[in-house]
Write a protein that binds this DNA or RNA. Structure first.
Lengths: 101, 101
DNA sequence: ATCGCTTATCGTCGGTTACCGATATGCATC
DNA sequence: GATGCATATCGGTAACCGACGATAAGCGAT
């Protein structure tokens, strides 16, 4: 889970994801041009995203077609919502449940 | 934005956030016991989370009361949804919009 | 003013990450 | 089987991150 969040924790990878989301079809090596990094670096980022299960690559020789994995980020979204939906009634520092030595 | 995602990209920090979400009141140094790391390390994680704007600390001498910042993760949630809501109709590799030399 | 409690900061060390150029791989074509 | 294209992998370097112990800082109580 943390790995998935970590995958999003880099500007270049976010750019790649946004690019994949905005592109109707799918793009091959244009990602390299888009992010402005070396081909090997982009390939590494793609590998990280793929390992995190966020994207998937479909081979279409000689290129590889990358696309977002639908619903892959759902768990992360659920976690965020779980964190966000706190009862605001729970005021701060009312009854600190400290371990009472 | 990437910084916020990066803040979530560590098991210890996720544990802290979950802990803050589950705790009705707020806790002080119990976080240290909960995550099982050194006090300095936890303090560092708290600083990162605070810098990312995910949590906030309210001073209640001699301790500090940490709590989640309501709605702070909303932008990240929006981003994820933006990525998740892709038209699944957009098939892969139908018309790769490559730059045609 | 001193002590005790809690948190923040500092210095350091080891592991990981990001980046690059160069090179290897895989496949279709000729 | 050699060539060309797109991607993956390798080797190396610089920067960052995470962890720790030690130490400083802030404040209430004595």
């Amino acid at each position: 889970m943390a790995a998935m969040a970590k995958a999003l924790g880099h500007p270049a990878r976010l750019r790649i994801l946004r690019l994949l989301a905005r592109t109707p079809g799918c793009i091959g090596g244009d990602i390299v041009d888009a992010v402005g990094l070396a081909q090997s670096t982009v390939s590494e980022h793609l590998r990280i995203l793929k390992n995190a299960g966020v994207i998937e690559g479909q081979i279409d020789p000689p290129r590889v077609c990358y696309s977002l994995k639908l619903g892959a980020l759902r768990p992360l979204s659920a976690l965020i919502e779980e964190l966000d939906v706190i009862r605001s009634e729970s005021a701060c520092c009312v009854t600190p449940v400290r371990a009472q030595g």
